[in-house]
């Protein structure tokens, strides 16, 4: 086949592929507003639980004697 046809086609395929990669990376990097609200709700629930559940190794310190 003629290189004059193959090379532009190859270039177009590469550009489409690269833009796809960039789009995916952008999607992974930033959450949509809905996802952000979801995450905030989850964090709020976990924070509340964290404040109420006691670690069984927790003790009260009343100071040293010497």
């Amino acid at each position: 086949m003629n290189l004059k046809i193959i090379l532009p086609m190859l270039l177009i395929v590469m550009i489409v592929f690269a833009s796809g990669c960039v789009q995916e990376a952008t999607d992974n990097g930033t959450d949509s507003p809905d996802q952000q609200i979801d995450q905030a709700s989850e964090n709020e629930i976990i924070d509340n639980l964290d404040n109420e559940i006691i670690d069984d190794s927790e003790l009260i310190d009343i100071g040293e004697l010497v």
């Binding site: 629930i45 509340n48 559940i53």
Partner: peptide
């Protein structure tokens, strides 16, 4: 403590967005 929070966290992840928001508000 960590395991309890992780288990409940898993259940929360399965909730819909509106359920999560309502649950967070109520908690």
């Amino acid at each position: 403590k960590d395991q309890i929070i992780e288990q409940i966290g898993q259940k929360v992840k399965e909730m819909t967005s509106s359920q999560k928001a309502e649950a967070a508000q109520e908690m």
